[in-house]
């Protein structure tokens, strides 16, 4: 059945694939293949002086998450890494909660502004995303350090009388993560609020609902896809963030990202670093999968 029409269509498809090929090949070779190699490295023996022993397979790296080998080669339960996982999850959960607390009302505020003001404010929300995170984390070091502007400001207002010693603590890391990811919470929530049919809220008011009920029964449920998307966009990257704990935690408040970096730096344990990265990646992909199954495009109400 090779009608001329079919041939033409096939030729066009070929042309389109050819156009996409350079970008696709670049990503396959320099993104997917490295991820594959990373998985292989995670099941290899670690080399004696860094690197790995190619061809010698072992699940040692994954066992390392929970156990360490004693001198006489017995496995001993080790909570060091578990503590870092726990801290990463806990700090990321607090960050997500904080982002939601500030981000939802901000998104609501944005959605209720006139169009001109809204566009300007939206632009202001996106600008920090395009600026250097390293530099912005550094700015927070200036603010949070002993005798820095936060200390001085609070003392000037008479709220505290000694320095808070905020820098290099868990609190500094949470402030930094909040600061980094707040826009990621505001934008998706704003997007779902913007698409919302506000007449539903008007109807609720007409039917005697007060603001709290309108919020609880209409606005929050309809904004749910945005809230979930925002929470994922905040939680997942903050779990693997490297810069913030490194600079604001001062190397004392390790998170998964720093632990991974250490394996390629001073610890010289590539398989463990690869295994940790692979675990982080699997977690991200799992979260995205769950999200895309539950909140398919078109399932705007967010009800499964």
């Amino acid at each position: 059945m090779t009608t001329p029409r079919l041939i033409a269509e096939r030729r066009q498809l070929g042309r389109r694939l050819l156009l996409s090929a350079p970008a696709m090949l670049t990503l396959l070779v320099f993104m997917l293949l490295p991820l594959g190699i990373m998985f292989v490295v995670s099941i290899l023996q670690s080399g004696d002086y860094g690197g790995v022993k190619w061809g010698e397979y072992s699940f040692e790296a994954y066992r390392n998450f929970f156990y360490e080998r004693d001198l006489d080669d017995t496995l001993v339960f080790n909570t060091d890494y578990l503590e870092i996982f726990q801290r990463s999850f806990w700090l990321s959960i607090l960050t997500t909660a904080g982002c939601l607390l500030i981000g939802f009302p901000t998104a609501l505020y944005l959605a209720l502004q006139t169009e001109r003001k809204r566009n300007l404010l939206l632009f202001l929300v996106t600008v920090p995303f395009w600026t250097n995170l390293l530099v912005r984390a550094y700015a927070w070091m200036l603010l949070l350090r002993n005798g820095g502007l936060v200390d001085e400001g609070l003392q000037g207002l008479g709220i505290t009388d000694t320095g808070l010693g905020l820098l290099y603590t868990n609190n500094a890391v949470i402030i930094g993560l909040l600061y980094t990811y707040l826009p990621f919470m505001v934008l998706p929530i704003y997007t779902s609020l913007e698409k919302m049919d506000w007449r539903l809220v008007e109807a609720a008011f007409d039917l005697g609902a007060n603001r709290f009920h309108a919020l609880k029964r209409i606005i929050v449920p309809l904004a749910m896809p945005g809230i979930v998307a925002g929470s994922i966009l905040v939680f997942i990257p903050s779990l693997g963030n490297y810069i913030i704990p490194e600079l604001l935690g001062g190397g004392k408040t390790l998170m998964i990202g720093n632990l991974i970096q250490l394996q390629f730096g001073s610890s010289h344990n590539w398989p463990l670093g690869a295994a940790l990265s692979f675990a982080l990646l699997s977690f991200v992909l799992l979260a995205m999968l769950v999200y895309s199954v539950r909140f398919k495009p078109g399932n705007a109400g967010g009800h499964p």
């Binding site: 490295p34 990373m38 990646l281």
Partner: peptide, 14 residues
């Protein structure tokens, strides 16, 4: 989609 640190170490290993 892939966390930056994961891209970084996998590219290094590659």
């Amino acid at each position: 989609l892939v966390p930056e640190i994961v891209t970084a170490v996998s590219t290094l290993m590659f």
